[in-house]
């Protein structure tokens, strides 16, 4: 009856009076990978914070896993978050713990499982991201891509229903990029999750996602399947997908006319 993991209806959000998100409609069907794209500062991260309950919508309703996030109290939000996983931009691993302890952390905090069962589960999760051999390393000894994979293992530790990814591709080399993209798709399919990927990496995400939303200045300007997006003739989408310097998103920050600024007199 409810086949949407995330269902956002006419959501608006403003910091003080500055509107960040305007009238957003977004649906994420269970088992899909959804990308939310847009240039930096367009409100993507804010959207993730609203979905995870860190911020409350100013207007509109946000349903996550069937619950209205905006109406939850702190305990309700914490209960919901146990069913969410989130991958932070740079992994956000706990630097004072080993890889193993990082992955075990959510289990130790939220379950009373005996230590040997935790061990089995941790190794299972690490195996899924291919880093079982790195369990005794500390986060400082990991490369950026490995840290991200460990963080991924940690965020699926409690078998979430919905995974949120905040810029999972930022700052990775092409190989690590492919590995992470592949993992997102594979974990979504094998664990039956829904994945919401916030990113500005068009090429990589178009390879793995089922549906794309484009946000610009707080408004959804385009949406569609990867094929529709690639074929799109909308100027903004075209600029974004092909990485052109100038277009609807202007290269120049709004300024008075150049010659006026330089004080050049027109004869």
């Amino acid at each position: 009856m409810n086949d949407y993991s995330v269902n956002i209806e006419s959501l608006s959000f403003a910091y003080d009076k500055r509107a960040v998100l305007k009238n957003i409609h977004l649906k994420a069907r269970r088992g899909q990978v959804i990308a939310i794209m847009g240039s930096s500062g367009c409100g993507k991260t804010t959207l993730l914070k609203i979905i995870s309950g860190a911020l409350r919508p100013t207007e509109g309703a946000v349903h996550v896993e069937g619950v209205d996030v905006g109406r939850l109290d702190q305990a309700g939000i914490y209960a919901l978050r146990r069913r969410l996983g989130m991958l932070f931009q740079f992994g956000a691993l706990f630097t004072d713990m080993t890889v193993y302890d990082n992955v075990a952390f959510p289990m130790r905090e939220h379950t009373d499982l005996p230590e040997d069962m935790i061990r089995d589960l941790v190794l299972l999760k690490l195996q899924a991201v291919g880093l079982r051999g790195a369990q005794h390393l500390t986060p400082a000894e990991l490369s950026g891509g490995m840290a991200r994979r460990v963080a991924l293992a940690r965020s699926i530790a409690l078998d979430p229903k919905l995974m949120l990814y905040d810029e999972p591709f930022a700052g990775l080399d092409p190989i690590a990029l492919g590995v992470i993209g592949d993992l997102i798709r594979r974990l979504t399919d094998t664990l039956g999750l829904t994945s919401l990927v916030v990113t500005h990496d068009v090429q990589e995400s178009l390879k793995i996602v089922d549906y794309v939303y484009f946000i610009s200045e707080g408004v959804i300007v385009a949406q569609g399947t990867p094929d529709e997006i690639r074929a799109s003739t909308l100027p903004y989408v075209h600029q974004f997908v092909h990485g052109e310097a100038d277009g609807p998103m202007a290269f120049h920050y709004p300024a008075p006319a150049y010659d006026l600024d330089l004080g050049v007199q027109h004869a």
Partner: peptide, 25 residues
């Protein structure tokens, strides 16, 4: 320094996302 760094590297935010209260933990 330790807590500031944990905040700067989003470790505290990550903890909150795991439904663990950083104040308590």
């Amino acid at each position: 320094a330790e807590i500031g760094l944990m905040k700067a590297t989003e470790q505290l935010a990550a903890m909150e996302m795991m439904a663990v209260d950083p104040l308590a933990r």
